[in-house]
Design a protein around this nucleic acid. Structure first.
Lengths: 252, 252
DNA sequence: CGAGCTGTTGATCTCAATCAATCTGAGTGG
DNA sequence: CCACTCAGATTGATTGAGATCAACAGCTCG
C-alpha cells in the first residue's frame, strides 16, 4: 500500500494528470477535503466522487501566492488545510485583507462563475493545501447535478452575507468597536479554562482585516489591558472580563 | 379584454392567489419582469413559465417598506420597476445604504437561500413593482431546473463581487475619491449632448451609499464646482471637464 | 404663507492615520 | 553560546480627513 508518492506536492505548473493511475487514493483525499466544506457536506456520494475526478491538489508553502489580483482564475479553490489570506487593493492604494480562509472555505467563486478575472489576491499564510476544481470541471458537474449547483448558490449567498456584515461594521462602527467585537466573536474556552482568542495571523494582518492600522490595533489592545479587560501574550489574548470588554467600546 | 383588475396593487398581506383564474395575463407580466434580470435572460422559456407560476406581484408606493432588517424573508424579490433602497444598520448605530436596486435587480437572495432572516431592510424610494418568488416556489423550481440553480449562483456571485468592490472603496479610497469615481462611473451622454449624471435618489441617500455624510457630499460637490469640473442643478450633475474631475481626487 | 423637508454653509472637534523612533524576540550564522 | 539581524510590535508626537453640531436658505405643497 505504499502509494505515498501521492502526498508529494503538486504545484500549479504540473496539471497532476500524471497521477491518474493511482486515482483511488488521490480522490479519497480530495473527497475528504470537499466534505470539509459545510455547503457540500450534504451532497450525494456519487456527485462528490464525480466532482473529485479531475480535481487538482495544490500544496503551497508559507508566503506562496495562490493567485494575484486581476488575474485569470483557473477555477474554484477549496481550502483543505492551512490558511489563505484574501486581500484587495494595489501597491499604490494599499492593501486590505478581506478574508482569512481556512479548511472548508472556498476561494474564487465569483471569478469562476462569472468568468471574470480575480478581484482579490490570495496568499498562503502558512503551508497550505487547496483543491482546485477547474472552471470547466465545475460547470460541467454543476450542469449535471442540481444539488451541486444549489450548493454553489448557497456558498455565494453565504459570502455575500459575510461581506455585507463587514461593510456594515466598517461603515457603522468605530475601530474600537470592531476590535472589541472581533475579540468577543472569536473567543473560545480553551482547555486552560479561561475565555481565549488565538489570533490566526500576525497582528498587522488582523488589523487590516478589521480595517485599522497596526498602530491603532496595538494601542487599543493596550488600552483594553489597562482597563483590565484582557491580557495579551503574543498572539494569545485572554479575556479577563467579558462584561467590561463589551462595554469598552468607547475610549477610557 | 378588460381584466385590468390585475393591475391593482396586491399587498404582501394578500397572497394574491385569488387571481389564479386570470393567470395567463398575470404570468405574462411576471415573465417579462423576470426577463429583465440579466442572469435569468438565458433561461429556457419552459423554466421561466414554471417560475412565473406561483410568483406574486407586489406594488409598493413611495416610502413603503418591503421588508425590515432581521425580519423573516418571504423569498426572492425581483424588482420589476421603480427603485428600492437596501440599507443596513439600526436606529442607534445609524443607517448605511448598501444598494439602490432598480428593474432587473434582485433582493433577499442570501436570506432566502440560507433560510435566515434578512440582514438589510428594503424600502421603495418611488412607486415600485416587485415580483416575489417565495422560498418554497424558488427552491422547488431550482431543484427541478439546473439552469435556474446556476442562475441563482451567478446572481450570488455578482452580488459578492459588488460588495467586495464596495468594501475595497470604503477601505482604500478617500471620501473624495469615492465621490469622484461615482460621478465618472455613472456619467452618461444624455440627449442634450454633455456628459451628465442624474442622481437616482436624494443627495443624502447617495451620500450614504458612498459612505460619507450629506454635509461632506455637499461640500465636495461645491469644491468640484469651484474647480470647474462639474455643474450641479438639483439632482442633475453635468461633467464639464472629465479630465480635471478625474484628477480632483485630492483636495484643492 | 408657514410648515417641513432637503440641502448648504460655517465652526469645531475627534478618531484614527501618519510619521518617526525604539523595542522585542525569533532565527541565523560564526 | 552569543552577537547580529530583521521583521514585527510598540510607543510617542503630530496631523488631518471627515464627522458633528448648529444655523440658515430654498423649495414645495398644503
Amino acid at each position: 500500500m505504499n502509494m505515498r508518492d501521492d502526498r508529494l506536492a503538486i504545484r500549479e505548473s504540473s496539471p497532476a494528470m500524471s497521477v491518474r493511475p493511482k486515482m483511488a487514493v488521490h480522490d479519497l483525499e480530495i473527497v475528504s477535503a470537499l466534505r470539509g466544506v459545510p455547503a457540500l457536506q450534504a451532497l450525494p456520494q456519487a456527485v462528490m466522487t464525480r466532482l473529485a475526478t479531475g480535481a487538482i491538489r495544490l500544496d503551497l508553502i508559507r508566503g506562496e501566492s495562490l493567485f494575484g489580483a486581476e488575474a485569470h482564475c483557473a477555477g474554484l479553490y477549496v481550502v483543505a488545510s492551512g490558511r489563505i489570506m484574501l486581500s484587495v487593493g494595489s501597491a499604490e492604494a494599499g492593501h486590505k485583507v478581506i478574508r482569512l480562509a481556512e479548511a472548508g472555505d472556498i476561494l474564487g467563486l465569483s471569478a469562476t462563475l462569472l468568468g471574470l478575472d480575480t478581484f482579490a489576491s490570495a496568499e498562503a499564510l502558512v503551508d497550505s493545501t487547496v483543491v482546485l476544481l477547474t472552471r470547466e470541471t465545475l460547470l460541467d458537474r454543476a450542469a449535471r447535478d442540481v444539488s451541486l449547483a444549489l450548493a454553489l448558490a448557497n456558498i455565494g449567498a453565504r459570502q455575500s452575507r459575510n461581506l455585507a456584515i463587514d461593510l456594515e461594521s466598517v461603515s457603522l462602527q468605530s475601530g474600537r468597536e470592531r476590535i472589541v467585537n472581533y475579540l468577543l466573536a472569536n473567543a473560545a474556552t480553551g482547555p486552560a479554562g479561561p475565555l481565549t482568542v488565538l489570533l490566526s495571523a500576525k497582528k498587522s494582518i488582523i488589523a487590516s482585516r478589521l480595517s485599522v492600522t497596526p498602530e491603532y490595533f496595538s494601542r487599543t489592545l493596550h488600552e483594553l489591558i489597562s482597563a483590565g479587560a484582557i491580557a495579551v501574550n503574543g498572539r494569545q489574548i485572554v479575556i479577563l472580563d467579558a462584561v467590561r470588554l463589551r462595554h469598552s467600546d468607547h475610549p477610557a
